[in-house]
Every structure is written in structure tokens, then in C-alpha cells.
Simulated assay, not measured.
Amino acid sequence: MLKIENLSAEIDGKQILKGLTLSVAAGEVHAIMGPNGAGKSTLSYVLGGRPGYEVTGGSVEFMGQDLLELDPHERAAAGLFLGFQYPVEIPGVSNVQFLREALNSQRKERGEEPVSGGEFLKLAKEKAALLRLDMDMLKRHVNVGFSGGEKKRSEMVQMGILGPQFAVLDETDSGLDIDALRVVGEGINAIMRAPDKGVLLITHYQRLLDYVKPDKVSILADGRIVQTGGPELALRLEEEGYDVVMADA
């Protein structure tokens, strides 16, 4: 579903990714863990097409397409969703307005008919209930005045509404308390656990993986994947730390 081969990338002339190779199959949740500065967020930004990140080598194939040849909006329409570590605020734009425009923009790119106002509200209520987010929150400006947990739950509602084939989630557990963590984890499972979908889940800690059970876990360090294993690898990292585990890699 997602195949990354020898990917190198830099920002402001500084090399961050240094020949990263990784693949995620359909139906798979693949967790990426690693120390600060390893390149985890850079990987998510490169996949999403964020400006300023220059790919200097390698390739990324997404569902049979050359992902790096697509503009960010084309990647989204092709089924790629990027969840941010720090969701941005958009004053003056309501969540409902933003999400309906985003959904219909993607549908237009795929040659599909737009969703009517009634259909959209039904869909939004369904996904908001899944993440235990009051519909009144979706009438407010995007993320303005939201707590950290509300921003992350709102972003998961966005993912549910857009219905991507593949989600790259960058530290979705950041800023979540215990209850919000469970709700977000359950939401990811409900929205993305399917034979034809995939998830690249970037996290520092085991705690989110207690709810979103990964099929594989990889350690990213110094711009490369240095070790890949099963869920037990995340447990070992939690117990022993990166230095010990990577010394054995």
C-alpha cells in the first residue's frame, strides 16, 4: 500500500532523512517510534507534501502511484490523510464549513458528486458521536479555543469524515489525558481498521499502542529505520529505553 525506498530529505540544507526504507501493507497498522530529532515528523511532512521539505533521493509509492509527483491536494484526494502533532487554528472558519469544503473538494478531484448539506450533517454527527465530540464544537471556528484533547478528537472526526485509505498520524497522543487517549484510540480503530486501509502511527510512547494495537513497530533513528519487530518491540522500548534497544539493533 505504501512503499518507501531509500528516501532522503532535507530542510534548509540540513539532511534529516538519510536513506529510509519502509513498507506498510493494506490492513496494517505500523508504528514508528524513535528519539527526539530522529526524523519522525519530517517523514510525515514529506509524505504529506509540506512545502520546504526537499526530497533529495529515493522513492515513495502509494497505491501504485508515485506519491512524490503529486501535489498535496492530489495526495489527499488519492486517499492519504496527515494528522498533525499540533493541529492549527483557523479563526473565522467553522469546522462544519471547513470539513464540507474539504470533503467535496476531494470528491471533485476524484470525479465524484458533491455531498449535500443534509448528507454531510448526518455524516458529521455520526463521526462526532464516535469521538464523543459535541456537534456544537463543529460549529465553532477550527480548533480555536479547543483544548489539546479536543483538537485531537476534532482531527479524528475530520479523518472519519474524509474517509482516507491511509493515515499518517504524527504523535496523535501528544497532549491527551487518559480518557481522551482511550477515545482517540478507539476512534482510530473504528475508522481505519479495515482490510483495505493502512496506518502509519508515529508516537513516542507505548500508551497509545495499548489501544491501537500495531502489527509492526519500527525504530527510526538518525533518519533511518534501524530495527523492525512486532508489538513486543514497543514494550521493550518502554522498559529499557532507546539507548539499550538500539545498541542491540
Rank of each mutant, 00 (worst) to 15 (best):
1 M>N: 04
3 K>M: 00
6 N>Y: 10
8 S>I: 08
11 I>C: 09
14 K>W: 03
16 I>L: 12
20 L>S: 01
23 S>P: 02
27 G>S: 00
30 H>V: 05
32 I>C: 08
33 M>K: 14
33 M>C: 14
36 N>T: 06
38 A>N: 10
48 G>T: 01
53 Y>I: 00
56 T>M: 08
61 E>I: 13
63 M>S: 14
63 M>C: 14
68 L>G: 03
74 E>A: 15
74 E>W: 12
75 R>S: 00
79 G>W: 13
80 L>F: 01
80 L>E: 02
86 Y>K: 08
88 V>Q: 15
91 P>D: 03
92 G>N: 06
93 V>F: 04
98 F>H: 08
101 E>A: 06
105 S>N: 15
109 E>L: 15
112 E>Y: 14
115 V>F: 00
117 G>T: 13
119 E>T: 01
121 L>I: 14
123 L>M: 13
124 A>R: 08
124 A>K: 07
128 A>V: 07
130 L>K: 09
130 L>I: 09
135 M>K: 11
144 V>D: 00
149 G>I: 05
157 V>T: 12
161 I>W: 00
167 A>C: 08
174 S>C: 04
176 L>H: 04
180 A>K: 06
183 V>D: 10
198 G>D: 04
201 L>C: 05
203 T>I: 05
205 Y>V: 07
209 L>E: 06
229 G>R: 10
231 P>F: 05
233 L>R: 05
238 E>R: 13
243 D>V: 13
244 V>C: 09
245 V>Y: 03
245 V>W: 03
